[in-house]
Amino acid sequence: MKGLIIQHWQVIRLTFQRLMHTPIASLLNILVIGIALSLPMGGYVLLKNLQSVAGQVAGPPQISVFLALDTSQAEIDRISKQLKEHAAVDRIEFVPRDLALKQLQQSTGLEDVVGGLARNPLPDAFIVYPVAMDVQKLELLRDDLKSWPHFEHVQLDSSWARKLESILRFGRLAVGILAAMLSFALIAITFNTIRLQILTRREEIEVSKLIGATNGFIRRPFLYYGFLQGLLGGIAAWLIIALSLALLNYSLVGLAQLYGSSFSLSHLSFGDSLTLLVFSAYLGWLGAWLSVSQHLWQIEPR
């Protein structure tokens, strides 16, 4: 047990030494991995920011219900009560037809035209604020309301939400594809680095096998190297993202002021950062493992 710990510690030191032995090559490898990882991860951060911004700007969703023109006051009261009791409804607001007309006059500036109308063409309306925020539940509520008597027209102001949702879905898919492809690239980079290392250390491997090294002992430094390279690549990616966000935020300050808001991009959360590092280290390890299992058995002492 103690021997094993000593061996692992020796290997970790050895791995650092090997990394430092070829500083430029190691640095370039780490940078390539960092850039490859920062693309999907940066996209993910932007998407997350976009989602939260959209939520802030658009306000809570609402469903407008227009009643039939011949609905009586008693029926309106009954509907109002029923809506309030509906489980999916948070609160409602009643807009009488006279008020609606007045608002129309004021907001559009078409006082003359509206004033010339013989009678009020607008119906009474309810504005329903639902409990749920996501598109599917909103649509379910709208369809439910459509079937109620006296409801002439039910309108869900969800087009923006739908558009945003589909844009986000598209973005997430794109980021996902990018991440998958670049993960393969990362594995390939490590695979090749380790392949070259195995070739240059052929003699050492041969001699080690001759004097009683287990396969685990021979494999270990390469696996650690892949792991370490992946981890450092992940750290590089994190730094690239942090730097880019800082730059973007700097230029966003001016833009946000023009819109009278104090908006800034938020950075990767702690959990996301941890995921990034674990994932990149794992991919590095995996690439090294694949390479070692592919190449090591070919080197047998003769």
Binding site: I6, E203, S208, G212
Partner: peptide, 24 residues
């Protein structure tokens, strides 16, 4: 001989002990 030229004499002799996991 099959000696390794990337390390000094001491480290060449050290290799079998590293393989067996002796402390420093």
């Amino acid at each position: 001989h099959k000696l390794l030229f990337d390390r000094n004499a001491f480290d060449n002799v050290l290799l079998p002990l590293q393989i067996c996991g002796y402390d420093h």
